[in-house]
Simulated assay, not measured.
Amino acid sequence: MYSGRLIKGIGGFYYVDINGEIFECKARGLFRKKKVVPVVGDYVEIDIIDKENKKGVIEKINERHNELIRPSVSNIDQAIVVFAVTQPDPHLSLLDRFLVLAESQKLNIIICLNKIDLLKEEEYREIVNIYASAGYKVILTSSKQNIGISDLREELKNKTTVFAGPSGVGKSTLLNYIHPRLKLQTGEISIKIGRGKHTTRHAELMAVEEDGWVVDTPGFSSLNMDFIHEDDLHFHFPEFVPYMDNCKFNSCKHINEPSCGVKEAVVLGEISKNRYTSYIQFIDEIRKSRRY
């Protein structure tokens, strides 16, 4: 058997990179019986059944280090979450949702705020401050003005990175500037609805310089919280953690309890009210989902 990495899956066909050669593969029926579905990013073992036409069969899926739910990818080192400062306007609750997902998988997380050429700095500085104060690295970019492109390129080296964010924020355009040979399709913002049009149709793993891999993913507009237990949620807001020792109760949910260190930090401005509002919203969603 040959070892490789699954880089794309479409319509029951899986494309596996083996030392730079791409083989089109089907998966053995035993995976269906075990209810295991190969996903982009999997390290796999294949039998080559037609070397000339590069056809094979996936025989084994090696153990995954981690797996994201949406986008569905595995064995990721880090997430670069891309949002535009405008066109479309940033949906911070959606950003917080993806951060929770990435935190739950123990990924290194970088936030990329794109299209900064369209606004004055004072118009987006508050967003930068919210997430920098929460402990996240924030990179500001503009492909039109070549701002931040080299910083992004540096972050991709020697890592497998999921490049994610809503449609229309410029993910594919940024990747094209970082690595022009990728030639990813890009789209425009719909004037009528104020959102981006989907240009990435499926998750795909792409090789970049210096042993790096990037997953350009379809844009997403919603992400349910039902994969997180409410007792764990506060750990996925890293800025909460230093204040949790100041809570009177070990089981504090930071909502209605007295003497709560997290709530006190919000009042003092040490934790963003926007982030705390997202936390309360997510707790409510998790509790409602448990009732059904």
Rank of each mutant, 00 (worst) to 15 (best):
Q185Y: 15
Q185M: 12
G187A: 10
G187M: 14
E188Y: 00
E188W: 02
E188G: 07
I189Q: 09
I189D: 11
I189V: 05
S190G: 11
S190Q: 08
S190E: 11
I191Y: 13
I191A: 12
K192R: 09
K192P: 06
K192L: 05
K192G: 04
K192C: 14
I193F: 01
I193A: 03
G194E: 07
G196M: 12
G196H: 04
K197Q: 15
H198V: 09
T199A: 02
T199Y: 00
T199Q: 02
T200E: 04
T200N: 02
R201F: 14
R201E: 14
R201T: 01
R201V: 02
R201W: 03
H202A: 13
H202C: 11
H202S: 12
A203E: 14
A203V: 07
A203G: 02
E204M: 10
E204Y: 00
L205Q: 08
L205A: 06
L205P: 13
L205G: 13
L205K: 03
L205S: 14
M206E: 11
M206Q: 03
M206R: 13
A207R: 09
V208R: 09
E209A: 04
E209G: 10
E210S: 13
E210Y: 07
E210T: 10
D211N: 07
D211Y: 01
G212A: 09
G212M: 04
G212W: 03
G212C: 04
W213I: 02
W213N: 09
W213Q: 14
V214K: 01
V214M: 12
V215D: 10
V215F: 10
D216R: 02
D216F: 01
D216A: 01
T217P: 05
T217V: 08
P218T: 00
P218L: 00
P218A: 04
P218H: 00
P218Q: 01
G219K: 08
G219I: 00
F220C: 05
S221H: 08
S221M: 05
